[in-house]
Nucleic acid binder design. Structure first.
Length: 215
DNA sequence: ATCATGATTTACT
DNA sequence: GTAAATCATGATT
């Protein structure tokens, strides 16, 4: 009934906003715009799926066993990019959250391309449809042309990679647990690590984390 | 559509 | 040496 105006989203992220635990920051990342530009061109995505990592509290976090060379930027100030290499071939990217010294971050798991589709297609020839271009954390990094070279980038400082709030609220969102991992505060294995925009085609259907079976 | 498998580097034990 | 915050591919339903 009230004529409450649609809440206007701020035009940029404030570092203090990101300097909270990833679980609190993650909702504001849904619908946000991640833009990457280099000599070749620009690709931007609307973030559709994120996953929170809670540092020392989270056995699944790269920071669980403390600071190392690889995870060092997770311990730095919020608003920087933590890019890591995995499975011998993939880059994945996180938005560092939390206070300096607290290693919490949000993995950007999926997005919808809103700018530079041609370049994204060129970088991801295996994608059979545009919704697959940035579906999955490594695919997203690939579509954006982000590699380890971008590790530590300040994404609030108008550099090669920038993050800004989306113009529109993301609409209905969903969350899901990651099974097999204890949540912070002893919540057991039902913690909503993942958030995504409901019914978004660029998000793969939720699959419980299955430990790889030995043979 | 789903399922199984191989690819291949890095960080850490 | 081993596990890893994954993906592309080819087989199968």
């Amino acid at each position: 009934m009230s004529d409450r105006p649609l809440r206007r989203r701020p035009s940029s992220f404030d570092r203090a906003t990101l300097a909270r635990p990833a679980l609190e920051v993650a909702p504001s990342l849904l619908g946000a715009i991640l833009r990457s530009r280099d000599d070749v061109g620009t690709v931007a995505v609307r973030v559709t799926e994120v996953e929170a990592y809670m540092g020392a509290e989270d056995p699944g976090s790269h920071a669980y066993r403390g600071r190392t060379t690889r995870n060092a930027v997770m311990f730095g100030p919020a608003g920087h990019l933590y890019v890591y290499f995995t499975y011998g071939m993939h880059w994945c990217l996180n938005v560092v959250c939390g206070e300096t010294g607290v290693a919490t971050a949000a993995l950007i798991r999926a997005g919808a391309i809103i700018e530079g589709v041609d370049l994204a297609r060129h970088r991801r020839p295996a994608a059979r449809s545009d919704r697959e271009l940035a579906r999955g954390p490594a695919r997203l990094a690939s579509a954006l042309g982000i590699t380890g070279a971008a590790n530590g980038t300040d994404i609030l400082d108008d550099g090669a990679v920038t993050l800004s709030p989306g113009e529109h609220a993301p609409g209905p969102t969903s969350s899901g647990p990651r099974v097999g991992v204890s949540g912070p505060g002893g919540d057991g294995d039902r913690f909503p690590w993942r958030l995504w925009i409901t019914d978004e085609p660029s998000v793969s259907r939720y699959r419980p984390h299955v430990p790889k079976r030995r043979r």
